[in-house]
Design a protein around this nucleic acid. Structure first.
Lengths: 158, 158
DNA sequence: TGAAACCCTACTAATTTAGTCAACTATGCG
DNA sequence: CGCATAGTTGACTAAATTAGTAGGGTTTCA
């Protein structure tokens, strides 16, 4: 999961549409003005959002975009992964340990970044557009940090 | 907290030193070869790691670097923030809501990225170098995802 | 029929990252 | 001493990525 301003713009725009939807499609020009994002750039983003089935569009004079599903069914992870290209897996950072000798200290860090990635995924999958609109996001960082004993046990398993 | 290959290199190098330390300082040239990172680049990184008091150096023939503290006292977050410059806070992404009207939909997403950042911080602060060496990292992504009811309650508080 | 809106491709400007170069300083050994 | 080793430092550059523009379409509807 990659995190750039592109993803942030996309989430902001989606939230904007969710908030301002009132039966009729919301035009990108409105979103552009409200969110301070250039129209042309937004169009790029929404093309991707559309092919990911996160929004649907209507053309013509009174056209625009609307959410494809209910806000509670659109997870932030969906939005971010729709607009941000997948990060290219460098050397030994791939999901599986291909070409990565587990014994060298180089790959000791492999698990770490894997785990962090999983962490981020879990978070972004646990938040949906409705949470954002209703401001229910704060205080969700209740990570269950293992005790030293638990860490030791986990290490022992491997 | 920013996450680039720079930070990853730094963590890998620190782990390398932790593993290969045997009473005498470890020369960067060794680390460079083992980790496949150019010596000149490593020097850059270690300059920062040193000024953050994460390593200490000895010059001269048998010189090199060693950890400043015990591996269990060096958190990954310390390493990453030592080498990766702080991300410049764009528009309304700052820690506090300066210049950010809480009512516009633009800033609805503010909390989200704040919370994600906190999430990452918590994780990277909960892992230390010893965990990495002992391979105790996997399985730490035990995030406590709130129930819908809990989310609602949290929203209600604000 | 024309204005408003989406659709699409290509290009470019700006920024950031990763890495190099070259010179310098300190240390220890023969 | 003087030389090799190893850290110290600042300046510079090349590659990659991101963010954003330009400029055409095409569809729809009043």
């Amino acid at each position: 999961m990659r995190l750039t301003t592109k993803g942030r713009y996309a989430v902001a725009a989606m939230a904007d549409i969710a908030v301002h939807f009132a039966g009729a499609p919301v035009a990108l020009s409105e979103v552009a003005e409200r969110q301070g994002i250039s129209l042309a750039y937004l169009e790029q983003l929404f093309r991707k959002l559309k092919s990911a089935d996160l929004v649907k569009s209507s053309r013509g004079v009174a056209g625009g975009y609307q959410l494809f599903s209910a806000p509670s069914d659109i997870r932030i992870a969906d939005i971010v992964s729709a607009v941000d290209e997948q990060i290219k897996t460098t050397a030994c950072e791939a999901g599986s340990s291909l070409g990565c000798q587990g014994t060298t200290s180089r790959c000791l860090t492999h698990d770490l970044w894997d785990e962090l990635g999983r962490h981020i995924d879990i978070f972004l999958n646990s938040v949906n557009l409705e949470d954002i609109i209703e401001k229910r996001v704060l205080g969700m960082a209740a990570v269950n940090t293992p005790t030293r004993m638990e860490k030791t046990l986990m290490g022992a398993i491997e």
